[in-house]
């Protein structure tokens, strides 16, 4: 049985100029322990799809799907309260802007322990101990002292580590990472990515990595979904995708990688559209 199974997901936003379709019938599947990368430009609907899974879209969004199942349980017909028991425990998510994603009024320790208080029966002291262990696991030095730190007292990389600690606190079966390294320095990007991959391997959790970085995809993913303007362009295992891309848009994306450049000017996706290759 797949961990997450979504068929024909559609998301529409009510806007002042009428309904806007952010996602037009995309299907996703993630198996336990699998790393799925969803790639695409901004506006391709990759984050929207995963926010729909988490139930985090604003009220202006209408989500429909033929099926949306987590471990066989239907997320669409589930009550909001039932869904909140799964969110944060079995499915967790980390976001692009780690500093903005942590509440500035609460300490890192409080924010990690809050997840444990919500989803486990651990007493206060055990929660504190577990928070220290989690901070150690994500590589935060002096975890005991750092528990009392506020987000503005930590670097972006450290904040993302706290976010990861929060996300893995209840040993989730699926972790969704929405461009987790985009806002970070290049050296920190590598560390965070390595950390995510190590945790994924250690815990055997499914990982959905939303990114626009094909280099990251090549290094980490088992399977890749390429999206463009709310539609799925291609889905393939990572080797096939890089060696033999089937879709014109995927080829365009890959050609835009600096390491694949052949001329003096780097091609863009628009060049391929102008050349008449319809994505």
């Amino acid at each position: 049985m797949s961990l997450l199974e979504i068929e024909n997901l559609r998301v529409t936003f009510d806007t002042s100029s009428g309904p806007f379709a952010a996602l037009s019938g995309v299907s996703y599947r993630v198996d336990p322990g699998e790393v799925l990368a969803i790639v695409g430009e901004s506006g391709s609907g990759k984050s929207v799809a995963m926010l729909a899974v988490m139930g985090l879209l604003p009220p202006s969004a209408t989500v429909t799907a033929d099926a949306m199942r987590f471990e066989g349980r239907d997320l669409l017909t589930m009550s909001a309260a039932e869904r909140r028991k799964i969110i944060g425990r079995d499915i967790s998510m980390i976001f692009q802007e780690p500093i903005a994603s942590l509440n500035p009024c609460f300490t890192a320790g409080f924010q990690i322990e809050e997840v444990l208080a919500r989803h486990t029966d651990l007493p206060r002291r055990a929660r504190r101990q577990r928070a220290i262990e989690l901070m150690q696991a994500v590589g935060i030095p002096e975890p005991k002292r750092r528990l009392a730190s506020f987000p503005h007292q930590m670097s972006g990389g450290q904040c993302q580590r706290v976010m990861i600690a929060m996300a893995i606190a209840c040993a989730p079966k699926l972790l969704i990472a929405d461009e987790p390294t985009t806002a970070l320095d290049v050296t920190i990007q590598k560390q965070i990515l390595d950390l995510l991959m190590r945790l994924q391997a250690d815990h055997g959790m499914g990982l959905i990595l939303i990114t626009h970085d094909m280099g990251v995809v090549a290094e980490t993913a088992d399977r890749v979904i390429v999206q463009y303007m709310g539609r799925k362009m291609e889905e393939a295992d990572v080797l096939s995708l890089f060696e033999n891309p089937q879709n014109a848009y995927t080829r365009a994306l890959l050609s835009a990688l600096p390491e694949n450049a052949t001329g003096t000017r780097l091609p863009t996706v628009a060049d391929f559209r102008l050349a008449g290759e319809d994505a």
């Binding site: 988490m54 909140r84 944060g88 967790s92 994603s101 509440n103 500035p104 609460f106 919500r118």
Partner: peptide
């Protein structure tokens, strides 16, 4: 509309806690 409110919701917290603690405190 802040990211940390989305994070609070992503933890599976009840709306009363998200609004009454995470949002209101700020």
């Amino acid at each position: 509309a802040e990211d940390y409110v989305r994070t609070a919701r992503a933890k599976g917290l009840a709306p009363s806690r998200v609004i009454g603690l995470h949002a209101l405190r700020n």
